[in-house]
């Protein structure tokens, strides 16, 4: 059974509801959200509370619960 969560786009504050399988990974969630928002290619991280989530961790491993909100943050790479 899927876990119903909210993903918040920190760039503009918009949110989406998502159903996640416990075996799906943080990278899977990022890919799905980026595709939904039709984001430009780029790097993103997911934050749960104060913590940045590791890409290979599954929803089960990060103890994702129904009703949780994850924040999706664009990870800038410019500077020169």
């Amino acid at each position: 059974m899927g876990i119903k969560i909210t993903v918040k786009n920190t760039a503009d504050g918009s949110t989406i509801k998502m159903e996640v399988d416990p075996k799906e990974t943080v990278s899977d969630i990022i890919d799905s959200a980026a595709e939904y928002w039709r984001k430009d290619a780029g790097a993103y991280v997911l934050k749960k509370g104060k913590s940045i989530l590791r890409g290979t961790d599954t929803a089960m491993e990060i103890n994702l619960m129904g009703g949780d909100t994850l924040e999706m943050i664009p990870d800038p790479e410019g500077g020169r």
Partner: peptide, 27 residues
């Protein structure tokens, strides 16, 4: 790192989580 009006600072200390620890498939 910067991108337009957004930016980031990441401090890596010996023994602590490094840049690579925070990267995922999108990176």
């Amino acid at each position: 790192a910067t991108d337009g009006f957004r930016g980031k600072v990441h401090v890596v200390l010996p023994g602590g989580p490094c840049l690579q620890c925070t990267m995922n498939r999108s990176h």
